[in-house]
Design a protein around this nucleic acid. Sequence first.
DNA 1: TGGAAAATAT
DNA 2: GATATTTTCC
Length: 552
Amino acid sequence: MVCTANELSEWKDFPKGLRVLLLDEDSNSAADIKSKLEAMDYIVYTFCNENEALSAVSSRPESFHVAIVEVNADNNNGSFKFLETAKDLPTIMTSNIHCINTMMKCIALGAVEFLRKPLSEDKLRNIWQHVVHKAFNAGGNDLSQTLKPVKESVVSMLHLELENGKLEDKDSEKTEDASMAHEDDHEPSPRSDKYPAPSTPQIKQGGRLLDDGDCQDNTNCSTEKESMEQDGESKSVETTSGNAIAEVTASDGQPQGPRETETVVKEEADLVDGTKESTKYSHSQNRSHSKDSHAGAEKPNTVSSLSKVNRKKLKVDWTPELHKKFVQAVDQLGIDQAIPSRILELMKVEGLTRHNVASHLQKYRMHRRHILPKEDDRRWPQRDQTQRSCFPHKPIMAFPPYHSNHVVPVSPVYPMWGAPPHPANIQMWGSPGYPPWQPTESWHWKPYPGVHADAWGCPVMPPPQGYCSAFTQNATGFNYSGTMDCRSPMTPNSVEHEPEDEIIDKVVKEAINKPWLPLPLGLKPPSTDIVLAELSRQGISTIPPHINGSNS
DNA sequence: TGGAAAATAT
DNA sequence: GATATTTTCC
């Protein structure tokens, strides 16, 4: 983020000048709070009923940075209403009542903190944290105009302060009450592993989940990597009790950076009373968790409602973005080198475990396997008639060596994963032409520039002689002998093949002996003209339209 | 570890 | 019941 002197000067005394909306029906209380806030150079706008306050917020949202709303037993609806309506405004609830359910409800409805009255200066002094937190955690798109300057200023400030070694006092406070978690008293420094998370449990906020290696304040009791991965997740649940937030910055530590690597996972967290509450971390764009408001809209037993949402450990939501990363990682590694651990490394996504990746990889492969042959099925028949009547119904052999580590990547384009039921998946697995995936998909062809997906398994007819030699050369160059390796079933000692295996074996041999035969090796097919000529020479007149397409 | 399959969750 | 994801097993 750019740090300009101008920005800095704009709010060099941050958080002084922070505009606070105070909603408190109790005029005495309001006056008291107001005076305290003003003593800290906060600008206070007092309202005694939610409608006025909401009206003010809606008419000039940029006028407030944070809100302090009182909840009382008599009229908490108004407070909740405000809370639910003014979602963009970090809202701190305060009350004389300490009903855990009320607190929970407030939090569930989006309150950033629940402070018990009376509000001491210490408590009030740090409300700016929520503003900063929001400024840094709101997705770029979500960042309101009000928060932008805050963020910029803070960044600027941090920049300077960091050079001085330490952040300004920023009041290392500790809010009590609802805040059972160890809070971050400082502003987010580029190196800190947490955001300036408010002291109160947040059940929302785009955040990252604990990463294996970043489970800073948690126990690292697990020695085994594997378990650490898992513990890293559940750990956040168990050891951060009271702090539903399990935010961990990405390795880069840049406040903004993590946003794009946030994993969408659901996490359960132990709440104060031990009940579980689920938190869904997602990309910043999804920040508004309807779930939360939904849960909050329920009765005081919000807790139990939340608890049922999920009891299991984290569940990775393979959003298109995440999947894209995955695919890119796979691409980068090459399909043959794409193993969970490496993919995981490349993805650099917090909270994602090797298992998650492995699982996804498994699915990914399955989809590919499932789809590719299907596509080929449409094309092979013709070939059968002409070249390989003995060829199995499916070009089994033509499968790319997805699971073979010693095979050269003969990676065909990643096809869509089929026709998924969910729109999201449709995107994820990329229906033809789905923009986001196009680049990725073509990426797969990197090792074989110019080769089109359709070349794979296309009813390409025996290429002319001239091409044959080229083909052979290429095949050699690309170590196509290795391709045969992927036909592991044909290992010498596997004498008792299934009938299908025998066929496979046969085909493999044939392929070996007749390299000029068009196996789906991902090689560039001959030019359309040549193919057409050859086809017609063989009396084949029916030509699938995609041949032309794939070659031109 | 990687990968397949079983078990669960949604 | 179908899928997606996690767990388990090898």
